[in-house]
């Protein structure tokens, strides 16, 4: 099965990414435009293919622009996580011994700090310096991406450590070490390049977790800054729709479906050739 499923998944992701990238130039309604006369229209209404929300904003447009944010948060957040976790884990695995123990113990400890404490701290620090940041082109969204990526570097570091431990015991690396190659050179020449295949999979598998984390933060009201929207934010706004009084099921169902399909596709793509995850 996996071959065509994988192709399908790649196709879906590619189409979604393209749609998200070109969304601003598509002939769709402004996703922020409110319309008091078109509130809570069900999918299939004229001019609003997927219906509207309680302010009359077009759900299709919001889903497309939400894709921009959710995919961006997923991809860049994960990238940030890797940029921090990778060197950390690689150094720990390669040096071993006391340094390894210290680094991993520190990682354990940081992992136990409640996530929200971390989020609030990061957001508050980043906000303190937002004027300085803006000078170098760092807006609110970028700050958010860094903060969310920062939450996920620990698992990356762990995987990177295990892999670099394995690689550093391979004969050619041992040989290099015995010949007096410096740690830095070993890292650059042997460890990092060989980490790449593992990381590719890791990257694809971390994206869904980052996207879900953004959904959770949106649930708490700490998500991306309005008027930008994300799928998680849309879904958590639609949560009230799950009862007999609110018949606007599409406000919850469609963003959730978008999330699930994308994450399914990512998992399919990230799966190894043998079907293992």
């Amino acid at each position: 099965m996996s071959l065509w499923a994988k192709r399908l998944a790649w196709g879906f992701l590619a189409a979604l990414t393209i749609a998200a990238v070109v969304a601003p130039w598509l002939p769709i309604v402004d996703y922020r435009a409110m319309d008091a006369d078109a509130r809570l229209l069900p999918p299939g209404s004229e001019g609003h293919l997927l219906g509207t929300d309680a302010q009359g904003r077009d759900l299709l447009a919001r889903l497309l622009f939400g894709a921009r944010i959710s995919l961006l948060v997923g991809a860049v957040g994960t990238l940030v996580a890797m940029l921090i976790g990778l060197p950390y884990g690689a150094v720990a695995g390669l040096r071993g011994g006391r340094i390894d123990r210290f680094l991993m113990r520190l990682a354990d400890a940081l992992e136990s700090v409640p996530m929200v404490v971390m989020v609030l701290f990061l957001l508050s620090i980043l906000r303190e310096y937002r004027v300085e940041m803006e000078v170098i082109g760092f807006g609110r969204l970028q700050l958010f991406l860094v903060a969310i990526g920062f939450l996920f570097w620990l698992p990356t570091a762990r995987v990177a450590r295990a892999e670099s431990l394995r690689i550093s015991r391979l004969p050619f690396v041992t040989a290099a070490r015995l010949q007096g190659m410096s740690t830095r050179a070993q890292l650059r020449r042997h460890i990092l390049p060989n980490l790449w295949p593992t990381l590719r999979v890791m990257w694809l598998l971390t994206i869904p977790r980052v996207i879900l984390m953004e959904a959770f933060l949106s649930f708490l009201g700490l998500g991306v800054e309005a008027p930008a929207v994300s799928w998680g934010g849309l879904a958590s706004d639609g949560l009230a729709a799950m009862n007999p009084l609110v018949a606007s099921w599409w406000l919850l169902a469609l963003p959730s479906a978008a999330l699930v399909l994308t994450l399914l596709a990512l998992q399919q793509v990230g799966r190894g050739e043998d079907g293992s995850t």
Binding site: A54, A240, A241, N243, P244, L245, V246, L251
Partner: peptide, 22 residues
């Protein structure tokens, strides 16, 4: 509101915005 709808509570101090139009 969910509890209210199943007679779990007789009163809730706030109605969710999304339920109001209906």
């Amino acid at each position: 509101m969910n509890l209210f709808l199943t007679d779990g509570v007789a009163f809730t101090p706030k109605t969710p915005d999304l339920a109001l139009p209906r």
